[in-house]
Design a protein around this nucleic acid. Structure first.
Length: 441
RNA sequence: GCCCUCAUCGUCUAACGGUUAGGACACCGGAUUCUCAUUCCGGCAAUCGGGGUUCGAUUCCCCGUGGGGGUGCCA
């Protein structure tokens, strides 16, 4: 049973930079998981303090990415809430009021046109649900309002977290050292600091340092564009720094929500592994219920121009049903099944070499074509299989001596779905036609 | 430099102080009398080093070493 704790309030506070980094996405995910696990509130707050940028357009990338991953927020842009506005650029008056509190208590001073915060000289205690109690002395005073009047990150997040009643701050470990500044500010406002949870960082697959936006696989947009299943990406991200134990990896999000908790989050950084993500995506694709697979696949076929010949829905469905179990990802579907929809399909070059290396395929194709032309049997998977087996046996050959050249002649590929199912769906006319044209195509 | 933090196969991870240190990805090999990119089976492969504590340490403590982060009028 999921405990319900309405006092838990967590937030994801991204800056709209024009891309959605995988590390940010994982931070958003862990916040969301914790909120859902506790029955708490997940808020989205936009740190759009940099006014030079085109916030509106950049914001959309972020919101699209969050929605795509299924991370819905309870308060924030487009949904509103009682603690708005949820854009930092619109919270100037609140920052001014909080700054005045610090002036009144003598914790700030002006220097070089900027406002400086005076540190206490006491080590700050960071109460971290993942790392335990971390102590750090903030030694130097720091700027909280720049000389151009704009408030600094450290100041605004503390003000916003107070004003929005945030109970748990779940963020990347790169902020752990900054937390001493934040705890100092909370104390200066005479407020108890929130509970922290500094989650491990996602490191580059190879080489030093954390994932940067330039690394392959670093951006959520990329997975959207490549038709990854969002459930798969989300599931993979859950496994970077957390484990459901019991040797399980793929599990429904409801179950992850039930199992997820902060103390169970790992403390060590994790390297990103694009291959494992791709593998997991394949597992999700192959496990999709037929109806859902059809719904997800159709747009890809359309995009690739494969539906230009207006195939019937039944035909498309049978092609998809045949191909699904072989796919490693939706992305490869159009190429994988193109020959079902067009006559000018490509002949794989490596496949050609492979086939010809085993003997002249045209001979086998002609032999079988002759037999097939006179054959009056039922055009079904079973009877086609019986036909070919008997045919090969009569000639003292292995079935595979014929299957390989025939598959290549009919599909241009050496790999693909089950051979007899493929013939069945293509139909008598097209199979005869393609065989008779081989190797010219 | 200083501060914080972390440490199990190449990678992601599991293991009340007692296990032949488990699973997954990747890689390698085999099977699926049609392919393989699906599926199945098998293999390779790890407790960073040194001290303690303990009958017993991957697990607790200390010191090294190595990694990561911070140290901005960036967020």
């Amino acid at each position: 049973m999921v405990p319900s704790d309405s006092t838990v309030r967590v937030r994801f506070a991204p800056s709209p930079t024009g891309f959605f980094h995988i590390g940010s996405a994982r931070t958003a995910l862990f916040n969301w998981l914790y909120a859902r696990h506790c029955g708490g509130t997940f808020l989205l707050r936009i740190e759009d303090t940099d006014r030079q940028r085109d916030t509106e357009e950049y914001l959309q990338v972020l919101l699209d990415g969050l929605r795509w991953l299924g991370l819905d927020w309870d308060e924030g842009p487009t949904v509103g809430g009682p603690h708005g506005p949820y854009f930092q650029s619109q919270r100037g008056e609140i920052y001014a009021a909080y700054l005045q509190k610090l002036r009144d208590s003598g914790r700030v001073y002006d220097k070089d046109g900027a406002v400086w915060f005076r540190v206490s000289g006491e080590p700050a205690l960071i109460d971290d649900r993942i790392r335990g109690r971390v102590q750090r002395l903030e030694e130097k005073d720091f700027v909280i309002v720049r000389s151009d009047g704009s408030p600094v990150f450290h100041f605004v997040i503390v003000v916003d977290d107070i004003a929005m009643a945030v109970s748990h701050v779940i963020r990347g470990e790169d902020h752990l050292s900054n937390s001493s500044k934040h705890v100092e500010l909370f104390r200066a406002f005479d407020r108890p600091p929130p509970l922290y949870a500094h989650i491990p960082l996602i490191l580059k697959t190879n080489g030093p340092g954390k994932m940067s936006k330039r690394d392959s696989g670093a951006l959520i947009e990329e997975y959207q564009r490549r038709h990854y299943l969002p459930e798969a990406v989300r599931n993979y991200l859950c496994l970077l720094g957390w484990s459901p134990k019991n040797d399980r990896e793929i599990l429904p999000i409801e179950e992850i929500i039930a199992l997820f908790d902060l103390p169970a989050v790992n403390r060590n950084n994790a390297r990103f592994d694009e291959k494992k993500l791709a593998h997991m995506n394949g597992e999700y694709v192959r496990a999709l219920p037929a109806e859902e697979f059809y719904g997800r696949a159709l747009p890809l076929l359309r995009e690739a121009g494969l539906l230009a010949g207006a195939p019937t829905e039944d035909y498309v469905r049978s092609v998809l049903a045949l191909c699904q179990e072989k796919l490693r990802g939706l992305e490869e579907l159009p190429h994988f099944c193109a020959y079902f929809f067009r006559e000018d399909f490509s002949m794989d070059e490596n496949g050609r070499k492979k086939i010809f290396a085993a003997g002249d395929p045209a001979v086998r194709v002609r032999e079988f074509l002759a037999a097939l032309g006179q054959w009056n049997g039922e055009w079904t998977e079973n009877s086609l299989e019986q036909l070919l087996r008997a045919f090969a046996e009569e000639r003292g050959r292995k079935t595979s001596d014929y299957v390989h050249p025939l598959r290549y002649a009919v599909s241009g590929q050496t790999v693909g779905p089950g051979f007899y199912g493929m013939l069945t769906i293509l139909g008598r006319e097209r199979v005869l036609d393609r065989l008779s044209r081989f190797p010219c195509h």
